[in-house]
Simulated scan of single mutants.
Amino acid sequence: MNDITPPGFDALFRHNEDPWGFRTRWYEARKRAMTLACLPQARYASGFEPGCANGELTAQLAGRCERLLASDVSPRAVELARTRLAALPHVEVVQALLPDQWPRGRFDLVVISELGYFVDGPALDAMAAHTLACLLPAATVVACHWRRPIQGCAMDGDAVHARLAQGLQLPQLCEVREADFVLNVWSSDPQSVAQREGFAW
């Protein structure tokens, strides 16, 4: 993974439709389940998943969103995700180079998974700023990243999350930190799930 430019990503997906084993590894299936379990709301009106790859997490998020937009820089990944999600008319997959081509619209869920270390620091800061600007009231922002070193990337997951937290400046609802990955959930609504349901004060 030395080449993390858009052509490099496209070559990855043209050589292998599932280059990171999203479909086959228990690690990936478990991480998706934990990501979904950490969402504080049962349903979201409008979600956005940048860096959707071949759409495996997107397919899971689709069950929690009335409308879901996903994007990837690789045209081949977008093609694979569209095929994966073809039966879900409320899901749209677009090709976009972020942060410059950040979508218009407002979202109450933004999921940034395994993406932040593939951009430099200023671009990650811009992504955080775009995320903050597009949020609906009481929205949820989720980030999940690999913690171990990645060849060709200056930041690991911990550095990505520290920079996102600094840029978002939102209350943190949840953190899961394992040897392999870190998962954070932020929201402008600091209430816990029990508080949101009215039985904890």
Rank of each mutant, 00 (worst) to 15 (best):
A53Y: 04
F13N: 02
L170Y: 01
L68S: 03
S71T: 10
T131H: 00
V142M: 14
R14T: 12
R196E: 07
W201P: 05
S71G: 00
P122C: 11
A129R: 13
E175I: 12
N2E: 14
V160W: 06
A70D: 02
R23K: 14
A129K: 11
R14I: 01
L36K: 02
E66Y: 02
S192R: 12
M127N: 01
R147N: 15
H90L: 09
M1Y: 10
Y117P: 09
E197L: 15
C65A: 08
R64N: 07
R106L: 10
D3N: 13
G47D: 05
W146S: 09
A87T: 11
E17G: 12
F199T: 06
L135I: 07
G121N: 12
A70C: 11
L80N: 01
D100Y: 05
M1D: 10
L61M: 05
A42L: 10
L97D: 14
Q172R: 15
I112A: 13
A59D: 08
L173H: 09
V73Q: 04
D158P: 02
L124G: 10
E17C: 06
A87N: 10
V193S: 05
E114Y: 07
A126S: 11
P40G: 06
F48K: 01
L135Q: 02
W146E: 08
V110S: 00
W102L: 00
T5C: 08
H130G: 04
I4W: 15
S71H: 00
A123R: 15
H161E: 14
A45D: 13
G198K: 03
A70P: 01
R104I: 04
W201N: 13
N16P: 00
L88C: 07
C38K: 09
V110G: 00
R106Q: 14
F107W: 02
A123I: 04
W201I: 08
P99K: 03
R84W: 04
D120A: 11
I112W: 04
T5G: 05
L88E: 11
F107T: 00
F48Q: 03
L170G: 01
A165G: 12
A37N: 11
F181H: 15
R147Q: 13
R147H: 06
D189S: 10
A123E: 14
T140D: 10
N16L: 02
R25T: 13
W146G: 05
A42E: 15
R76G: 01
H90T: 08
P171L: 03
Q60E: 15
R43A: 13
D125Q: 15
A53K: 04
H161S: 11
A179D: 14
L132A: 14
A138G: 10
C144H: 11
M127E: 00
L173Q: 10
R148C: 07
F9Y: 14
V142I: 13
Q95T: 08
F181A: 12
G105K: 02
Q172N: 06
L183W: 08
L80W: 02
A143E: 09
A62P: 02
E56N: 10
M1Q: 10
M34F: 09
C144F: 05
N54G: 08
K31P: 08
E49T: 05
V73G: 03
H145Y: 07
M1G: 14
L124P: 06
